[in-house]
Amino acid sequence: MSAMRRLGPLIANLAMTALALMFLYPFYWLIVSSFRSQEAMLVNPLRLMPESFDLAAYTSIRLVGGVPIEVYSFNSMLITVLATVLAVATTALGAYALYRRPHLPGFKFVQFGFLLTMMYPAMLLVIPVYLVMFRIGLLGTYAGLVMFLALQPILFLMFSQFFRSIPRDLMDSAKMDGASEWQVLTRVVLPIAQPVVNTVFLIGFLLNWKQWLPILVVAASPDRYTLPVALLAMNTEYGINFQSTMALAALTTAPIVVLFLLTQRRVIGGFVAGAVKG
């Protein structure tokens, strides 16, 4: 019995470590490979340490498709940050409005519409999005890219879920204290929602950072591409340069890994705050 009790956690820990390694390995491999020459990689793909720290790949990606890497990085940051801010602001306010006044005419329809966009395959949106962006003159503009990426129904659902967990009495109480609808939101709901807003922002950021299809569609030329699209562009008619691809992939992944590590504690706190009522 006591042996079982000691073995249980041990086995669980081993299993989790194994699982974690399974997820970590591809990232590790990616980084290692970015330092290895293409030939070495083909000969012995699974080597755990690079033969030497060869930085050739990193210098080779100064220009991708004729556009400096700085442009892609700048685009990635700008578009992701703006789109995520816009997405968090609109979905938070939208979910809040739906929560506060669920019976206003048309709100049921809006909610349903949001769910529908989640179930709709993104691939099928390519042509309509292209046409709409073209018609309203946003094709190839930052505004078009940001607006399209700001459409994030999953964030809306996360906010809806959270707002529903706030006791209604709390808002009624603020009303009784003389708060306007805006003050209820800014003085009571948002401070309580802070950890959830952080979490949703981070998730929105991750989702937008890795987007490539809508950017490929809406950005008319490579100078509006982001890092993931540049990564895609490395796959040229001349074949794949493994080493450079790995280097660019490492650069693309690094910011979000850092971001996640920095905010991890708060994000997990936010999940818990959202899950436990009150």
Binding site: P167, D169, D172, S173, K175, M176, D177, G178, A179
Partner: peptide, 14 residues
């Protein structure tokens, strides 16, 4: 409600 000048104590304290 904010303008009626009343105060309410809720069952859940709120």
């Amino acid at each position: 409600a904010a303008k009626r000048g009343l105060a309410m104590v809720f069952q859940s304290y709120a």
